[in-house]
Amino acid sequence: MESSESGIGFQEYWQILKRRWLPALAVFASVVALTTYGTLKEKAVYEAEGKLLFKKTTPGSALTELGKEIGELTSAAEQSNPLTTEIELIRSVENIEQTIKRLQLKNEKNNQLKTKDF
């Protein structure tokens, strides 16, 4: 009993491609062109990043030991220290913009100072 091999090998594919190179090139070029057009037409995706500061609130009375930790600095994350958190708050864009407006800071051309230059 002989087992016949079913399917087409590489040589057959190559011969078909050699005979029909023009339609194959047209299909390939149209797929590349449509993919390029779709990629360039797609809207850009932007990412934003921010930090959150959570403050502890204790409902205890200031006369008892329960309200003792109200004035203490605590970190926003478990791995950071409270001073790093306060530095991040001072360097925030909102605080810089308020500082520039309140102090009316100007550059050499007498224009309002930009946040980046601050």
Rank of each mutant, 00 (worst) to 15 (best):
23 P>E: 04
105 L>P: 12
54 F>T: 03
25 L>M: 13
35 T>Q: 12
37 Y>C: 03
11 Q>V: 05
79 Q>D: 12
1 M>V: 03
90 I>F: 13
28 F>E: 00
9 G>E: 14
17 L>P: 08
58 T>G: 03
113 L>Y: 12
88 E>F: 03
80 S>P: 00
65 E>V: 09
104 Q>G: 06
94 E>W: 00
27 V>W: 02
56 K>A: 03
77 A>L: 08
26 A>R: 14
15 Q>S: 11
69 E>Q: 08
109 K>M: 07
11 Q>L: 12
36 T>M: 07
68 K>H: 05
95 N>H: 10
110 N>A: 11
5 E>S: 03
57 T>W: 12
15 Q>E: 15
89 L>C: 03
55 K>A: 15
72 E>W: 05
22 L>P: 00
71 G>C: 11
25 L>S: 07
6 S>I: 06
59 P>S: 11
8 I>C: 09
71 G>S: 09
76 A>H: 02
22 L>E: 14
75 S>R: 07
84 T>Y: 10
24 A>E: 15
100 I>Q: 01
76 A>D: 04
26 A>I: 15
102 R>A: 14
107 N>C: 01
43 K>T: 08
78 E>I: 06
47 E>M: 01
24 A>D: 02
57 T>A: 03
82 P>F: 13
112 Q>I: 01
116 K>I: 05
118 F>W: 12
94 E>L: 01
96 I>V: 14
43 K>F: 03
113 L>F: 10
8 I>D: 07
17 L>K: 09
73 L>D: 07
5 E>W: 00
56 K>L: 00
99 T>A: 15
36 T>W: 13
22 L>R: 10
93 V>E: 13
14 W>L: 14
28 F>T: 09
85 T>F: 01
38 G>W: 00
